[in-house]
Design a protein around this nucleic acid. Structure first.
Lengths: 139, 139
DNA sequence: ATACTTGCAAACCCTTTGCACGTAG
DNA sequence: CTACGTGCAAAGGGTTTGCAAGTAT
């Protein structure tokens, strides 16, 4: 059983963004591909090291930065904590955060999106990006 | 001309929150009272020192923290920069940020607020707090 | 009188960076 | 081969904290 069983997908993702393919980047990209949550840099580093122990903190941060720059992933800063990342291959969505458990749910509301554009337009602006987070507690 | 011409309001605000009144806190509170923008801790410190040069950085942070805790002010972290503060005496609102100039405008949308509650309810949650920021560019 | 606040400086956390070595292309 | 990527360790920015001295109540 080969240990570098990274899906070929990781290499493609990196190549398409014009990035050189390295073991470390593949490890990091595969972590993001498999993540169903919103890990921060430290957590991504931990998981990447399970795939390739040589990944350094500096490389984790640099890779996340370059991937975000190329539009491969999005970063969010909930509540002023550390940055959390997710692949940008999925459609846009906002977040609902359970303030007791830390669970993060994703949602989309075409109505809200549309109202946002309307508001921005009233001020003479167009939206480049937005962030909507609902900090909630179970009823 | 007395130099401690703080509006009596500052003392009241602090007293009502059950906080001891000190020169430093009055200086900080008065900065917030007069601010029409969204200054961060460093800027608040600078302005507070114009009123009372003895205010230290530690006290600025501690006072902002305790005031936020008592509900006297709200803090926002736009874009992952430093925390910005504003008195909580004004009604809730969201923010539209001009990404070119850094200008911050405030807005409210009852419709969006209502949609947010509806979405949270669908997940079985009630909203404790939320954050909506539109990062925009002039059309 | 006494608990709360302060200033100072050190510590913290997350993130970035300079450097010399390593490697993908 | 050469430009780009890497690990290490040090530095950076924003914020917090331990401590002894000061002060509001």
């Amino acid at each position: 059983m080969s240990d570098d069983s990274e899906t070929p997908e990781t290499a493609e993702i990196l190549r398409e963004a014009g990035l050189r393919i390295t073991r470390q980047r593949e490890a990091i990209a595969s972590v993001l591909l498999e993540a169903t949550d919103h890990p921060d840099a430290e957590e991504i580093l931990t998981r990447a090291r399970e795939r390739d122990a040589s990944v350094s903190q500096a490389t984790a941060y640099r890779t996340l930065a370059v991937m975000a720059e190329k539009g491969l992933l999005r970063s969010h800063t909930f509540d002023g904590g550390s940055s959390r990342f997710e692949l940008a291959d999925r459609p846009h969505h906002d977040h609902l955060i359970d303030i007791d458990t830390g669970d993060i749910m994703e949602f989309v509301s075409a109505e809200i999106e549309s109202l946002q554009r309307k508001i921005a337009a009233e001020y003479g602006y167009e939206i480049v990006a937005h962030r909507l987070e609902l900090y909630c507690r179970k009823k």
